[in-house]
């Protein structure tokens, strides 16, 4: 009923907008602004490791994840044995 609508107030929506934006933009800034950094890191890590052992470019993955409190950088590199059996070494 219109009269009821007039007297009862719907809860404020602006705080929700503000909070949603803060969460969303923290993510978007990390993914658009950080991609360059991740690529640089990937290239440099690859260069350092290839000094000491032969690795496949394609078998290196570098991931940056940003949370509210901490960010993590996950580097996953596959190091082949001469025999071709793979072993995975993980650093985070």
């Amino acid at each position: 009923m219109n009269l009821l609508r007039f007297f009862s107030r719907s809860p404020e929506s602006a705080p929700a907008a503000r909070e949603r934006l803060q969460v969303l933009l923290a993510h978007e800034r990390a993914s658009t602004g950080g991609s360059d950094l991740v690529n640089k890191l990937r290239d440099e890590i690859l260069a350092v490791i290839s000094k000491h052992m032969k690795i496949d470019d394609e078998k290196v993955s570098v991931k940056m994840e940003r949370g509210a409190q901490v960010s993590t950088l996950a580097v996953d590199i596959e190091i082949p044995f001469e025999a071709g059996k793979g072993t995975r070494k993980k650093a985070a």
Binding site: E12, A14, R18
Partner: peptide, 9 residues
């Protein structure tokens, strides 16, 4: 009224 983002937000 809280129905629009404020300047400070």
């Amino acid at each position: 009224r809280g129905d629009m983002l404020k300047v400070d937000d």
